[in-house]
Amino acid sequence: MSPATAAGSQNRALRFFEATIVKKAIVAVTGAVMFGFVTGHLLGNLQVFLGPERINAYSAFLKSNAELLWGARITLLIALFAHIAMTIQLWQIKNAARPVGYVKKNNSHSSLAARTMYYSGPVILAFVIFHLLHLTLGTVHPHYSETDVYANLVYGFLQWPVAVSYIVAVGLLCLHLRHGISSMFQTLGFNHPRHTPRIQAAASVISALFFAGYASIPLAVMTGVVRLSSMSL
């Protein structure tokens, strides 16, 4: 048997970014950054339940420091871009790795979340774009106001198809995170017989809580729990 007959790069170390392990580590690190954002964003959004003054003041506070705001936005954009660029490359590698599929394939040993990462991801991307046009830029919003976030939420989610699509999208985001939160530890090389099952359990709990938290906002508007004082119900 002759070694290295296949494409033969065994005699040199792969360039750092060529390795799928490194590409995947970038997915994990950028995923962790976005996870941090999703956590903060949820805590910020839940202030809608404390009334218009609270959340509008919070929004004004965020917008008051342009350096911080743009620093965070640029960091997140870079993270999102790198996350997607790496996953597209990994998707191509994975597809090339099995040109002929199975007639029958049983995948019952793995979680739905893990198997659908490449599908939940693009839906989240579409949602992120829509969400920015809807509540950040207001382009696709019926009554957008630069300063009244509370009213933007209420008017936005009174359109029920919009509210439902938000709920579906955050559901997929939480499915993505259910695998992602624990997967990133494994990707970066951490696996421990006692801690790994705990991390997995924590990932399930966190993603379920995130879903409850994020979905509660459009639901609250649809059910009239969150409404404008000028509106009669």
């Binding site: 290295a4 494409a7 790069s9 792969l14 799928t20 994975k94 040993h109 979680s111 624990s182």
Partner: peptide, 18 residues
Amino acid sequence: RMVAQVKAEQFGNCTNIG
């Protein structure tokens, strides 16, 4: 070297599916 060879053989990448 082993990881480089895995790539040269055109195996896919791990996504921790299990």
